[in-house]
């Protein structure tokens, strides 16, 4: 698929290290305004590290990460967030010492135009009921995941990095999260999704990048999915 617009987020030859270990060996891909792009790959392929490297929370990184034409590679993670990128981490990162409401209100507004609380509660009706709950971590896994997504929608960041939002959740909740992602796309959010659950990814993604050993091995658009299915199974080992 040829896209003549300049990408919203462009990653070029991204390398990163945790201490001595070299995790990413030159990752390159683009995400365009309003797209849902999925990084697929086995455990340890470097998907989560890619998100963390974009965010600036790995030990050391090199290469280029441009967002809205601005180079982010030298910035600290708080400055990356202020540029308008928000992360929903794999472990969800709900704070035990904060109430549900405090968890929801924690991330500061980085740009104008974040979703209002009313809109967020329309997306996640269960959260409104649990707002009075004393401890964020007393919520069920699904509710915690929704809280983790909900709190970054408030901030005005229009580029969302979602790290395995369906991991360990029941099918009915996975469906709800899929619906949410499609709604967010309609509202103009740009989403970079990391997934192991290929079936889920295929319900929301516009394009796929397959990662292997810290590199992007393959990329294809949604329309080419069926043609690439066999190859994909090989990469993912399913």
């Amino acid at each position: 698929m040829l896209d003549v617009r300049s990408p919203l987020l462009s990653v070029k030859n991204l390398q990163s290290w945790y201490g001595e270990s070299h995790i990413l060996h030159g990752v390159s891909f683009d995400v365009h305004q309003g797209e849902v792009v999925t990084l697929l790959g086995r455990n340890g392929a470097g998907k989560t590290t890619t998100l963390k490297s974009i965010m600036g929370i790995v030990g050391q990184r090199s290469g280029a990460v441009t967002f809205e034409g601005r180079e982010l590679i030298g910035l600290a993670s708080n400055q990356v967030a202020r540029a308008g990128i928000a992360l929903c981490p794999e472990e969800r990162g709900i704070f035990a010492s904060l109430t549900v409401e405090e968890n929801l209100m924690l991330p500061p507004e980085v740009k104008k135009g974040g979703l209002s609380l009313d809109t967020i509660f329309e997306l996640f009706p269960n959260l409104k009921e649990r707002l009075g709950s004393s401890q964020g971590t007393k919520l069920s896994g699904g509710e915690q995941q929704m809280l983790a997504i909900a709190r970054i929608l408030r901030t005005g960041a229009r580029m969302l990095l979602l790290d395995e939002p369906t991991e360990g959740l029941a099918p009915v909740i996975i469906q709800q999260i899929g619906k949410t992602i499609r709604t967010l796309k309609q509202q103009g959010f740009t989403i970079l999704l990391v997934e192991q659950n290929f079936r889920f990814a295929s319900t929301v993604a516009d394009r796929y990048y397959v990662m292997e050993n810290g590199r992007v091995a393959e990329s294809f658009a949604r329309a080419d999915l069926d043609a690439n299915l066999e190859k994909l199974h090989e990469y993912l080992g399913v």
Partner: peptide, 22 residues
């Protein structure tokens, strides 16, 4: 709210920073 930042940063400073807090 300031206190919530402090408590959250005590638990997970990396994530709080990635939300845009110095």
């Amino acid at each position: 709210r300031l206190g919530a930042y402090l408590r959250a940063a005590t638990e997970n400073p990396t994530l709080v920073r990635a939300f845009g807090i110095n």
